Amino acid sequence: MVLPVPTPDAPAPAAAMQAPVSALPMAFQQFALNGKVAVVTGGAQGLGYSMAASLCSAGLVGIAILDINPLVGEPAAISLNEQFGTNAKFFRVDVTDELMMKSTFGAINDEFGSIDVVVCSAGVVDNYNAEDYPYAKFQRLMNINLGGSFLAAQSAFPYMRANGGGSIIFIGSMSGHVVNFPQPQIAYNASKAGVIHMMKSFAVEWAKYKIRCNSISPGYMHTGLIESFDQNWVNTWKSMTPMARMGEPHELQGAALWLASNASTFVTGTDVTVDGGYTAM
């Protein structure tokens, strides 16, 4: 199912996207998120925003966009509200701050009445040769990518348990399965491998609470960050991908919606790779 790929500056599509569940074909009704509330860390731009849009298009009643930068966070929430009619609110948060994360999730639950879906999308990447990697930067990246995902899940737990369950979607990477080439990114690779295995640990521990934990591992995706990379790297990435291209942000939307919805109620502890066949080689 192809969903729109809105950006904070995109014009609003028709409000008819939030059709009543009963009006959908039977096969699609299980993908509806009507009445649900989602939280997306790193949801103000890029892949996080695209996945947030896909969830809103499926009928969310509320969504919390968490980001450290209000200059992108506020417009993102406004855009989601205007496009989909979803009650979207921005919360400024540092995902590595335990007290801030836990108080923010409490405020979200108070605001919306529940937390049903969490997408742990906040992340960063650095490119240093392993022998030259500044340890402070290594720690910072691990704190954001791995620690931030841990805190998001842990902060959501009491509200999901009280609500009878939920779905937590971690954002891994094909870099958690293979070592990318030619760029050096030892901390990023390690952090995403950690995210995937951490997800599986959460899935096993929290299955008894009906909290499903899964992850999506994107391959090379065509986002604004690509412009900052060496174009020789970009050409190499395309040549090493069997589909001979980069993925588009909207190509993660179906996986996110599936894992968030009742279409995947017996799926937990699973990593879904969306990489154009890169890790199949």
Rank of each mutant, 00 (worst) to 15 (best):
A77I: 01
I78N: 06
I78V: 12
I78W: 00
I78A: 12
S79N: 11
S79G: 05
L80F: 05
N81Y: 06
E82K: 15
Q83A: 14
F84R: 06
G85E: 04
T86P: 02
N87P: 00
A88T: 05
F90W: 10
V93Y: 03
V93C: 15
V93D: 03
V95T: 15
V95R: 03
V95D: 04
T96P: 05
D97Q: 09
E98V: 10
E98D: 11
M100A: 15
M101W: 02
M101S: 03
S103D: 14
S103Q: 15
S103H: 10
T104G: 07
F105Y: 15
G106T: 10
G106W: 00
A107G: 10
I108A: 04
I108L: 09
I108R: 01
N109Q: 11
N109A: 14
D110K: 12
D110T: 09
D110N: 13
E111T: 15
S114G: 05
S114D: 08
I115R: 00
I115W: 01
D116N: 14
D116Y: 04
V117Y: 07
V117G: 03
V118A: 08
V119I: 15
C120R: 01
S121M: 12
G123C: 09
V124D: 02
V125R: 04
D126L: 09
D126K: 05
Y128G: 02
N129V: 08
D132L: 13
Y133P: 03
Y133M: 14
P134S: 10
P134V: 09
Y135H: 12
Y135W: 14
Y135G: 01
A136W: 01
A136R: 12
K137C: 00
K137V: 07
K137S: 09
F138C: 02
F138K: 03
R140K: 14
R140F: 09
L141E: 15
L141P: 01
M142F: 12
N143R: 13
N143D: 15
N143A: 15
I144P: 02
L146F: 15
L146V: 11
G147F: 02
G147V: 07
G147M: 09
S149I: 05
A153C: 14
Q154N: 13
A156M: 08
F157P: 00
F157I: 04
P158E: 02
Y159M: 07
M160E: 04
M160Y: 02
M160P: 04
R161P: 00
R161F: 02
G166Y: 04
G166L: 04
G166N: 04
S167Q: 07
I168L: 08
I168T: 05
I168C: 05
I169G: 01
F170N: 11
I171H: 00
I171R: 01
I171T: 12
S175F: 10
S175Y: 10
G176K: 04
H177N: 13
V178P: 01
V178K: 06
V178C: 02
V179K: 12
N180I: 08
N180S: 14
F181C: 08
F181M: 11
P182R: 05
P182M: 09
Q183G: 02
Q183Y: 06
P184A: 14
P184I: 06
I186H: 11
A187L: 11
A187H: 08
Y188M: 12
Y188E: 09
S191Y: 07
A193D: 10
